[in-house]
Every structure is written in C-alpha cells, then in structure tokens.
C-alpha cells in the first residue's frame, strides 16, 4: 500500500526527476516510521492511517510544483545573465581583435558600419537591462518566510469571528 502511494507521489512529481527521487525517499522514510510508531498491531490499518495523515499526493505535488517552478525560473534568469555577460565579452574581444589585426573597411561600407555598430550597442544594452530587470524581479519574488503581516487581516477576522471550539486547527 505504501509503495503504491509512493509510486503515485513520484509520478505526480515527475516534472522534476531529482526532486521526485528525493521526495519519494523522504516520504518512504516518513511513512514507515509512522507505521512503526502506530500503536495498533494491524499493519494494513497502520499503513492506511500513515498515508491518510500524510495527505493527498496530488496536493503535495502541487506545492512542490510551485517551488520547482520558482527554482527553474531563477536558474533561467541567472543563465540569461551569464549568456549576456558572455556576449559582452565576445563583443569586446572582437573589437580588440579588429584593433590588433588593424582590420579596415572600405569607404563605401564605413557609413553603414557606423549605423550597425550603434544598433549593435543599443541592442546589447537593452538586452542587458531587460535581463537584469528580469533577474531582479525573479529574486525579489522569493518568499522564504511568509510574512505574518499580509495575513494579519485574515487572522484578525478569524479570531474575532471564532467561538471557542475544541477541535484542532486544520489544513484539511
């Protein structure tokens, strides 16, 4: 039963293979430890309880999907910045190479080359600004510790509306 659940969880996380492997191992350890700690002697019932307490595999995978997407976005942003830096170095190297070889262009192409250089330059700086802005945006969207403040309103409302009740707070 636990193996079936782990297969389902791994399948739901198949969008990220390394994440899927890691979460599967963590979940496996968790579930078997929960079974071992179950006071009832019935193995099957203990497994059912452990899985029920662990939660819906799809819901858990959905939470991981958000994290995985954010991580991949950040990686893509940093890769874009690296590519831009590489292009910049290549452009500078090309200019240095022309200077070193004393390469000259004909008079007929000189006017056109000036225009091309301008387009080249502004396109580069534009892409650099867009790339850095995207990177800053991605990094700024990280929310490692959800702040208390944004939900303070909800919390206040729930506190004010809630009558004393015996049942525990629940995610379910």
């Amino acid at each position: 039963m636990i193996q079936d659940y782990l297969e389902l969880l791994a399948h739901e996380l198949s969008f990220d293979r390394s994440l899927s492997r890691r979460v599967r191992q963590e979940a496996e350890d968790h579930l078997w430890e929960a079974v071992a700690a179950d006071p009832a002697g019935n193995m099957l019932a203990a497994q059912q309880r452990a899985i029920a307490n662990f939660g819906d595999a799809r819901a858990i995978a959905a939470q991981f999907a958000v994290i995985s997407l954010a991580r991949h976005s950040r990686r893509a942003g940093f890769a874009a910045v690296l590519v831009i830096a590489g292009v910049f170095i290549a452009m500078k190297a090309r200019i240095s190479w022309y200077a070193a070889t004393q390469w000259v262009i004909s008079d007929s192409l000189r006017a056109v080359s000036g225009l091309v250089v301008q387009i080249d330059r502004y396109a580069f700086w534009l892409s650099l600004i867009i790339g850095l802005s995207a990177c800053v945006y991605i990094v700024s969207r990280r929310s490692p510790l959800r702040s208390i403040r944004p939900i303070a309103g909800n919390f206040a409302v729930s506190l004010c509306c809630a009558a004393p009740r015996p049942q525990p707070l629940s995610f379910r």
Partner: peptide, 23 residues
Amino acid sequence: GGAFDLPEGTIYPALHRLEQAGL
C-alpha cells in the same frame, strides 16, 4: 499540544522552500 492538525506531507514542501531560501 496537538493543536495543529496538518497533513504531515505538507511539511516537506515547506522544508524544501526554506532550504532553497538558505534558512
């Protein structure tokens, strides 16, 4: 004191998120 009845699997996305954040 058993006040938080959260699905246990929910802890893992939080752990991964906090690890990614360097906490």
